[in-house]
Amino acid sequence: MVTCHLRYEIDPARIDDFEAYVTGWVPVITRLGGTHHGCFLPHEGASDIAYALFSFSSLAAYEVYRTAIRDDPEAQRLLRLGAETRCIRRYDRTFLRPAGPAEGVPV
């Protein structure tokens, strides 16, 4: 399994646009084979940092998803929303794996 951790730097004045953008990906990711773990908006502290986490069974499965969103109308709508509203200043994408022993190996 691979988990994608997204750290967004957002425009606090566009938080409603960003929330529509980031939560809109939940059904898209689910429909295209991933598991979404949630979107996290600023509450206390920095007002311009937000996060999202989602997983796929492998990096190859994630790449299939990345190819599929090119032709997915809802994904394209969300990408346009982000671009048109400029609610996202920048983002960082990090891929993580679960810690611990390999599956099937006794502890």
Score class of each variant (00 low, 15 high):
81 L>V: 03
85 T>G: 07
74 E>D: 14
64 V>I: 03
84 E>C: 13
52 A>E: 03
86 R>A: 15
81 L>K: 11
70 R>N: 15
67 T>W: 08
83 A>C: 13
59 L>T: 06
60 A>Q: 12
62 Y>H: 05
85 T>L: 09
85 T>K: 06
64 V>H: 07
63 E>P: 02
50 A>Y: 05
79 L>K: 06
64 V>D: 11
50 A>L: 06
64 V>L: 08
52 A>S: 08
55 S>W: 00
49 I>F: 10
80 R>S: 08
65 Y>T: 04
51 Y>D: 10
85 T>H: 08
71 D>P: 08
58 S>G: 02
86 R>E: 12
68 A>W: 07
66 R>L: 14
50 A>Q: 10
65 Y>F: 08
56 F>K: 00
77 R>V: 02
54 F>E: 13
76 Q>V: 08
75 A>S: 14
84 E>H: 10
83 A>T: 10
57 S>Y: 04
60 A>L: 04
49 I>Q: 14
68 A>Y: 06
84 E>I: 05
55 S>K: 00
82 G>P: 10
81 L>N: 10
55 S>P: 03
54 F>T: 02
55 S>V: 00
68 A>M: 06
59 L>S: 13
73 P>L: 07
57 S>P: 14
51 Y>T: 05
86 R>D: 11
51 Y>M: 11
49 I>K: 14
63 E>S: 12
72 D>C: 13
79 L>T: 02
59 L>D: 11
78 L>Y: 08
70 R>K: 15
58 S>D: 01
51 Y>F: 15
72 D>M: 13
57 S>C: 03
55 S>H: 02
69 I>P: 14
69 I>D: 07
60 A>M: 12
80 R>Q: 07
72 D>Q: 03
65 Y>A: 01
54 F>C: 04
52 A>D: 11
79 L>Y: 06
78 L>T: 06
82 G>D: 04
79 L>E: 11
60 A>V: 00
50 A>G: 07
84 E>W: 06
66 R>I: 05
83 A>P: 14
51 Y>C: 15
73 P>V: 12
68 A>G: 02
76 Q>C: 08
53 L>P: 06
82 G>Y: 03
82 G>H: 08
77 R>N: 05
62 Y>W: 06
71 D>K: 14
76 Q>P: 04
67 T>D: 12
72 D>R: 13
